[in-house]
């Protein structure tokens, strides 16, 4: 069932999810996206540029963070606009991995255009990693 635009309340949570990332997730994303920057799979390279260790591709975090919204609206084609700001790295420990949590809330509703703006809170270790993370979904 597609959510009904007129029923949405600003500020209400429409979707929540947690994603467990491992080094395998990063290798998989590197292959799928073609982004083979070694800071995403080699600790020595990450440390040589001043990072504490391997971090997730920002585009992987962006890509998974919208999935709870896709599942809520029922069709990936309903996401017509999606933007984020990369504010903090997600370090992925070789043994323990990393947990990224997503909470999606209604930010704005445009009844005339048939569009809802869904604001995403995306956190790792209790800190926000994506700023101004907004997905616009077509519910017309």
């Amino acid at each position: 069932m597609t959510p009904v635009l007129a029923d949405l309340l600003i500020g209400s949570v429409v979707a929540e999810a947690s994603f467990s990332l491992t080094r395998d997730s990063l290798v998989r994303y590197a292959g799928a996206s073609g982004d083979f920057n070694p800071i995403h799979y080699r600790d020595d390279v990450a440390q040589s540029v001043g990072l504490s260790g391997v971090l997730a591709h920002g585009m992987l975090t962006m890509g998974l963070a919208v999935q709870p919204v896709v599942d809520w609206v029922g069709d990936p084609a309903r996401v017509v606009d999606y933007q984020v700001r990369f504010t903090r790295p997600v370090f992925v420990d070789a043994t323990d991995g990393a947990i990224v949590s997503v909470v999606a809330k209604v930010g704005a509703v445009d009844l005339g255009a048939g569009i809802a703006r869904i604001d995403l809170s995306v956190t790792f270790n209790g800190a926000t990693v994506l700023g101004k993370a907004q997905a616009r979904v077509n519910l017309a």
Binding site: M59, L60, G63, V66, V70, D75, P76, A77
Partner: peptide, 30 residues
């Protein structure tokens, strides 16, 4: 889709995509 944890059938299954009105599987937003 697998790499970004996209599990919606419309990302993976051409039949599900066609049932939703698309010509083939739909790519994730990113």
């Amino acid at each position: 889709s697998r790499a970004v944890f996209a599990t919606n059938p419309i990302n993976h299954d051409p039949e599900a995509a066609r049932a939703a009105g698309h010509s083939d599987v739909v790519a994730p937003p990113t």
